[in-house]
Simulated scan of single mutants.
Amino acid sequence: MKLLTIDDSRTIRRVISGVGAMIGFEVLEAENGDVGIKVLENQGEEVALILLDWNMPGMNGLEVLKLIKADPRWMHIPVMMVTTEGEKDYIIKAIQAGAIHYQTKPFTQEEMASRIMEALGMGGL
C-alpha cells in the first residue's frame, strides 16, 4: 500500500514521506493538484490514503478533493487534509466534500503517524 502526499511544500512532503516510511508505507509525492491527479491516473489502484494540502498554486486542496471524490476510480480512497487552515469553516467544507480526517500544520511526526493509522482504520499509535 502507498500513501500519496499532495503539497506544494517540499519540506512537508519529505516529513510525510519519512513518517510513512517509519510506519511501513511507500509515499508518492506531488507538488500540486495537477501532478497529484496524474499520479492517481498512473498508480491510483495502489494508493491507500491521500494526504492533501489546502493552499497550493493552481487547484487548491478543496478543488482536488472534489475531483477525487467525483471520480469512480478514486472516490473510495480516504483523504486527509493536512493544512495550516484550522478554522471551523475550512474543516466543515473539507468534511462535507469527503475528507475523513483533518490535520493542521505544524504537527509532530508522532501526531502524523497516529493520524495516518487512524485514517486507515488501524487505530492510533
Rank of each mutant, 00 (worst) to 15 (best):
L65T: 08
Q109E: 09
E87Y: 07
I91M: 13
M75G: 00
L65V: 07
V82K: 11
M80I: 04
I91P: 00
N60P: 00
E87C: 03
A70G: 11
L67R: 15
M75E: 14
G98D: 02
I68K: 14
E85Q: 14
G86K: 11
G86H: 11
F107K: 12
A99F: 09
L67A: 12
I68Q: 12
N60I: 08
W74L: 02
Q43A: 10
G58R: 14
L62R: 09
L51D: 03
W74M: 07
A113W: 12
L51Q: 06
G58H: 09
A113S: 09
P72C: 02
M80D: 03
A94D: 07
R115C: 05
R115W: 11
L51V: 06
W54Q: 03
Y90W: 12
E87P: 00
E46G: 10
V79E: 07
W54Y: 08
T104S: 04
E87M: 08
D89Y: 12
A99D: 06
A97Y: 11
A48T: 14
A97N: 08
Q43H: 10
I92Q: 09
T104D: 01
L67T: 09
K66D: 05
I68F: 10
V82H: 08
L65I: 06
Y102T: 05
N55H: 12
I77A: 06
L67W: 02
S114C: 04
A94K: 06
A48E: 15
V47M: 07
Q103Y: 02
G86S: 13
D89T: 13
K88G: 00
K69W: 09
V79Y: 10
A97P: 01
W54H: 05
M80P: 00
M81K: 10
Q96I: 02
Q96C: 01
M59F: 12
V79N: 06
N60V: 07
E63F: 05
R115T: 08
K105H: 11
I91A: 04
P78C: 09
T83I: 11
R115P: 00
I77S: 03
M56R: 11
G44K: 03
E110D: 12
Q43S: 13
T84V: 10
L62Q: 06
A113M: 04
D53F: 12
M81T: 05
I95K: 15
